[in-house]
Write a protein that binds this DNA or RNA. Sequence first.
DNA 1: CGCTTCGCGCAACCGAAGGTTGCTTGAGTG
DNA 2: CACTCAAGCAACCTTCGGTTGCGCGAAGCG
Lengths: 120, 120
Amino acid sequence: MAAVIDDDLWSAIGDPTRRRMLDMLLAAGGGTATSLSHELPVTRQAVAKHLGVLHRVGLVHAAPIGREMCYRLDDVQFARAVAQLSTVGASWDARLQRITQIAEAIQRHQGADPGRQNKT
Amino acid sequence: MAAVIDDDLWSAIGDPTRRRMLDMLLAAGGGTATSLSHELPVTRQAVAKHLGVLHRVGLVHAAPIGREMCYRLDDVQFARAVAQLSTVGASWDARLQRITQIAEAIQRHQGADPGRQNKT
DNA sequence: CGCTTCGCGCAACCGAAGGTTGCTTGAGTG
DNA sequence: CACTCAAGCAACCTTCGGTTGCGCGAAGCG
């Protein structure tokens, strides 16, 4: 079921660039738009925008240090996002396994009836 | 690390509407653009486009039956997508837990030195 | 058999999001 | 004090999710 926030978190981690940014932040423990952009295939501006998005959904917080703006992960919110990932994955996985097993069972029982398809 | 295909799968399951469609296909075992659109907040056309995307990345295959076009999940590819989800989630989770524990350890040891931040 | 119906695919259009370039501003540093 | 370098802002482009409107062709029914 999960809450609606789901969507924000998902769209945040759904973007490949943002995913890589989260990855880097998680690994480095923090960074600026410029430092992140050095290892990403996009410009500093794009990174800044993504950081803005991540900040809005609470996945990072910003700490201005001198003329630099250091962004760090919000552990709690990030953990929530990860949990959501796992949840969806797990539920899909479970259902997939169920129907796969059912299909196998049917095949084993009926052996040769490929023309049988239950319409609607 | 995972392969590059990652990205296609991710962008496919990253969209909330597509996620719901996959959900429905998984539950119903198949469906047409029209039937799916009946239970989605978008038009048939949008659903058709999404089905096109899913088909291009191999998550579904289409079976034309008379004038209807029945789409069904590709179990293998779908399983791969799910696996990717789990992988990313798990790796993030692991790292998160590590740094969380480290942080706790530092706090416990040094008690009061919040100004310490490793730059670069 | 021919007409109607219903589902599909195609094309045009729209708004939002990701990305780029260019500029300005302001904190550190020589 | 002059210079440098990171941030932030604004304008613009392209892609994507979504809509409306259209025409076609297969089923269904008189």
